[in-house]
Simulated assay, not measured.
Amino acid sequence: MEERGAGGKQSKKKSTWPAIKSKHNVQINQLKNLDLFTIPDILTAAESRAFITVAESMGFSHQGSLGPAKGEAYRDNDRISVNDPILAETLWHCGLQNMFTDIKIRGKVAVGLNPSIRFYRYNIGQRFGRHIDESVELGDGRTTKYTLLIYLNGSPRSKVSSNSSSDRNSSARSLVGGETVFYNNRGGIVAEVSPVEGMALLHLHGDKCMLHEARVVSRNAKYVLRSDVVFM
């Protein structure tokens, strides 16, 4: 099944999004040149957790599929979809736009994010099977070219461990599973990305999209913010 950028039922509830600070000196970690890369700390821990709180207050709806027997990827997660140009612009200018200044695709340049913003929640046992993401035509020559995922929880930023009760409690609340895995044309693994709180993952989609999946969550819940990078 192909992930369609603007599909799904949209929430009509009004929400106050958390304030997002502009990030400076952000870095790209290339996993497959500029076809697939991550940006650590595009959201702070407080910003990430605030988005989770707002999303939970809005209420998720279950998203399934007909399954491989019907020609669709297996899908089992919960979802919220909103159309919010202001949120899209705020996220774009928090530091993402600086990562695309030198990226051109067939003469087009990045101009912002798709205002269709989605929040995904994967509870224990939920996953999204191997699939590709489609490009979306938004009109006026604007087309989405990259998928944007921002992990709202996952591995903590600090790898320092101790025997304190706060560290033990944090470990008990940490996410296990939910990796995003990319495959080449022969089925070999190109990259395996573990969710890290506040980290952005970007990859080409449309005719350049690599087959990928979200592995099953085995402890706690995984939260992701999803949009697309628009070119024109």
Rank of each mutant, 00 (worst) to 15 (best):
K13N: 04
K14T: 09
K14R: 12
S15I: 05
S15A: 15
S15L: 06
S15Q: 11
T16M: 09
T16K: 14
T16E: 14
T16L: 09
W17S: 00
W17R: 00
P18T: 03
A19Y: 08
A19W: 03
I20E: 03
I20Y: 05
S22K: 14
K23D: 04
K23R: 15
H24N: 13
H24G: 06
N25Y: 06
V26L: 15
V26W: 01
Q27Y: 02
Q27A: 12
I28S: 11
I28H: 05
L31W: 11
K32F: 05
K32N: 14
L34E: 13
L34S: 12
L34V: 10
L34F: 12
D35I: 00
L36H: 06
F37V: 03
F37W: 06
F37K: 09
F37R: 03
T38S: 13
T38C: 09
I39A: 04
I39F: 05
I39T: 10
P40A: 06
P40C: 08
P40L: 07
D41I: 00
I42M: 03
I42N: 01
L43P: 00
T44G: 13
T44E: 13
T44F: 02
T44H: 10
A45R: 12
A45L: 06
A46G: 11
A46S: 15
E47D: 12
E47P: 10
E47S: 11
E47I: 03
S48G: 11
S48E: 05
S48M: 02
S48C: 10
R49N: 14
R49W: 00
R49P: 00
A50W: 01
A50F: 01
F51K: 07
I52T: 02
I52N: 06
T53D: 15
T53M: 07
T53H: 10
V54H: 02
V54T: 15
V54A: 05
V54E: 07
A55S: 11
A55M: 09
A55Y: 00
E56N: 15
E56A: 04
S57V: 01
M58N: 07
M58W: 02
M58L: 14
G59S: 09
F60W: 10
F60Y: 15
S61A: 13
S61W: 03
H62A: 08
H62T: 08
Q63V: 03
Q63L: 09
G64V: 10
G64S: 15
G64Y: 04
G67R: 02
G67C: 09
G67D: 11
G67K: 02
G67T: 03
P68G: 08
P68V: 01
P68D: 12
P68H: 04
